Simulated assay, not measured.
Amino acid sequence: MTVSRAARGPHSALDPEWFRRPRPVSEPRLRLVCFPHAGGAASFFRDWPRWLPADVELAAVCYPGREDRIGLPAVEVMDELADRIAEALVPALDRPLAFFGHSMGASVAHEVAMRIERRHGRVLRRLVVSSRSAPSRLRPSGLSRASDEVLVRDVQELGGTFSAALDHPDLRELLLPTIRADYRLIDDYRPAEPSPRIAVPVTALLGDRDPHVGEADMRAWAEVTEGDFGLRVLPGDHFYLLEQAPSLVTELGRLLTSG
């Protein structure tokens, strides 16, 4: 399914098939590119622009296989997904970029950041990774090949905006193939060892009650950067950012535009 011109908003260097701009900015001083979690979609970030500075444009990645791209097959290989997003971002390199990735999206954002830096010499303003173990601490869960019941139970344990939808048989049938494809991408992902260091500074965020990710897992993100690194632990579970979005995004905006 294609996106209408009205939904795309004013002209932008960003590919409208891959990126959604909830509040288009004609001359942004910075673009914040947000990468959703497994099973997640660009709409997860639709409210964030209200808490960002007016001259910061948010662009949420729309992975194939969901929302208005639901007719497309989900990408199940990390290298393919990161390559395609990095290519789609090339026209947007006229402005400073920062990335925010939540859960699976943190790994995708990191892989795209490495490609942008290696291929184009562009260093992001910052890479913000949320609720996802660093590359050196990732271990396959095997859930992508588990039964539907086991997979659904894991998704619902993590919470999030769509976990309750999986209680409804029709919605489960619609959503589960894409969720399973994302879990397969996660299970089969093998980061380079050791992970190449990038110049971009990294900020790691974690909920203090996350059932799958601990402080040590997040602190290890320091290994991927030659820039500065910071870790912040916030109240909440894997989706801590749902309840804390106003204060979190406001602080993130200040961080990205300071200096």
Rank of each mutant, 00 (worst) to 15 (best):
T203G: 03
V233D: 03
R197K: 06
V150G: 01
L248I: 15
A113S: 13
R219I: 02
R23C: 01
V152R: 11
H168N: 07
A42Y: 02
A41N: 11
D83W: 00
V200Q: 11
A38I: 08
A165M: 15
E215H: 01
V249I: 14
V213H: 00
D237K: 11
S4E: 11
Y183K: 02
V128G: 00
D79C: 00
G121E: 02
G207K: 04
R132T: 15
L158C: 01
P64C: 15
E76M: 03
H168P: 07
L185S: 05
E17S: 14
S195E: 12
A220W: 00
A60H: 07
D217A: 04
R5T: 15
V75G: 12
R197W: 04
D210M: 02
M78C: 04
D208Q: 02
S107Q: 06
P73C: 06
L176N: 14
T225H: 14
P135S: 08
S144Q: 02
L176W: 01
D228S: 15
V128N: 00
S131N: 02
A59G: 08
R8Q: 10
M114D: 14
A146K: 14
P73N: 06
P36Y: 03
G142S: 05
S136I: 00
P211W: 02
V61P: 05
W51K: 05
R95F: 13
L97V: 03
L89N: 14
L234A: 13
V129H: 01
R153N: 13
L174K: 05
P196D: 12
D47W: 14
T250C: 08
I186G: 12
L52F: 12
P28M: 13
L206A: 05
Y240K: 07
P246I: 08
